[in-house]
C-alpha cells in the first residue's frame, strides 16, 4: 500500500512535468503577444520590445521553460501579466471557494443522482424509471446559466430563502452547489441505475435473498456497496472538472472560484495564470484519481493494488 502510494506520487510528478511542458508549448505556439497587450495601444514598438525582454518572452523556448521550472521549484508561480499580482496569491484567494463549491456540488450530485438511480433500478421498466431517465437527460443537457438563474430567481429573489449570490456562509453555498448538483446528477443517476441492475443480477444477491435476508438488508448491505464502485471513479473525474471548469455558475452566483480566473486568463493569454491554474487543477486530478483508486479495493476487496 505504502509502496503503491509512493510509486503513484512519483508518477504524479511526471504527470505534472508533462502537463506543464504541454501547456508551455501551447502557450509558446499561441500567436498572440502578451507584451503588446500589456503595453497598450499608445505604446511604441520600442516599449513593446522592452516589455518582451523584461518578461523573457524573447528567449528561446527551452530557456523560458527552464526559468519557469526553476522558479516553480522555489515555489514561485510568477506574477500575472494583466492582474499584476502574484499568481500564488490569486489562486490562494480563490482555492478555498473552489474546494468548498466542489464539495457541495459533489454532495448534491450524489444525493440527487444516487437516489434517482436507485429508485429507477428498483422500479425498472415502470413509468417511474422512464420519468427519471427523462429527468436525467434534461439535467445533463441544461445550460448552466439557465438553471442557475432559475434557481436564483425562485429561491433567492422570490422566496428570499437564500442570498442573491455571494460567498461566505452556508446559505451562500446552497444554490450554486444545487445548480451543479442538478446538472451533474444525471450522470450519477444513469450510472447508478445500470450498476445496480448489474449487481442485482449477480448470484450472491440471489443467494442472500435465498438465505432469507430481508430485502432492504440485501439492498444496503450487499447491493448498493457493490454498485457504487464506478461512482467512485466518477467522483475522481468530477474533482478535476470542478477545479477550474465552472465558469458560468461562478459568475451567476458571484462565487469567487478559480474557473472565472482561468477563463479570463485563457482569453487574454495571461501565461502565468494559465500555467498556475493548469498545474493546480492537475494536482487535484491526480489526487482525486489516486484516492479513487485507493478507495476501490476497500469497496471491492477482490481488487488488488499493484
Amino acid at each position: 500500500m505504502t509502496a503503491y502510494i509512493a510509486r503513484r506520487f512519483g508518477q504524479a510528478l511526471l504527470i505534472l512535468v508533462g502537463i506543464s511542458l504541454v501547456t508551455f508549448v501551447l502557450l509558446y505556439l499561441v500567436p498572440a503577444d502578451p507584451a503588446r497587450q500589456i503595453a497598450g495601444r499608445s505604446a511604441t514598438a520600442e516599449t513593446v520590445e522592452n516589455i518582451r525582454n523584461q518578461l523573457g518572452l524573447n528567449l528561446p523556448f527551452y530557456e523560458q521553460y527552464g526559468r519557469y521550472v526553476a522558479a516553480l521549484a522555489r515555489g514561485d508561480l510568477g506574477r500575472s501579466y494583466l492582474q499584476k499580482t502574484q499568481v500564488s496569491e490569486l489562486i490562494a484567494s480563490r482555492l478555498p471557494a473552489s474546494l468548498l463549491l466542489m464539495a457541495g456540488a459533489i454532495v448534491c450530485e450524489l444525493l440527487i443522482g444516487l437516489t434517482m438511480g436507485l429508485v429507477a433500478a428498483l422500479r425498472r421498466g415502470t413509468w417511474v424509471d422512464s420519468s427519471l431517465m427523462v429527468v436525467s437527460f434534461v439535467g445533463v443537457s441544461a445550460p448552466q446559466f439557465v438553471i442557475g438563474i432559475l434557481l436564483l430567481y425562485v429561491f433567492a429573489v422570490q422566496l428570499g430563502w437564500f442570498p442573491i449570490g455571494g460567498y461566505g456562509t452556508f446559505r451562500h453555498l446552497v444554490l450554486p452547489a444545487l445548480t451543479l448538483g442538478i446538472l451533474g446528477s444525471g450522470w450519477y443517476a444513469r450510472m447508478m441505475r445500470s450498476s445496480m441492475l448489474d449487481v442485482l443480477r449477480q448470484d450472491y444477491i440471489r443467494t442472500a435473498h435465498a438465505k432469507g435476508l430481508k430485502g432492504w438488508k440485501v439492498l444496503f448491505g450487499h447491493a448498493v456497496p457493490n454498485a457504487i464502485l464506478p461512482i467512485i471513479a466518477m467522483i475522481g473525474i468530477d474533482i478535476g472538472m470542478f477545479m477550474s471548469g465552472i465558469v458560468v455558475v461562478e459568475a451567476v452566483f458571484g462565487w469567487p472560484g478559480i474557473g472565472q480566473l482561468a477563463w479570463q486568463a485563457i482569453q487574454r493569454i495571461d501565461i502565468p495564470i494559465i500555467m498556475g491554474v493548469t498545474l493546480v487543477s492537475a494536482c487535484a486530478i491526480v489526487i482525486g484519481n489516486l484516492v479513487a483508486d485507493l478507495v476501490a479495493p476497500l469497496i471491492d476487496p477482490r481488487i488488488k493494488l499493484r
Binding site: A39, R41, S42, A43, T44, E46, N50, I51, Q54
Partner: peptide, 24 residues
Amino acid sequence: NPVTQSPGAGFFGSIDGFAAMADG
C-alpha cells in the same frame, strides 16, 4: 520608466527627455 510597464507611457512622448527614458 519602461520598468513600470505602463500602458500609458506613450502619452508623455512630448515631454523633453522622454526618448532617453524610453531607451533606458
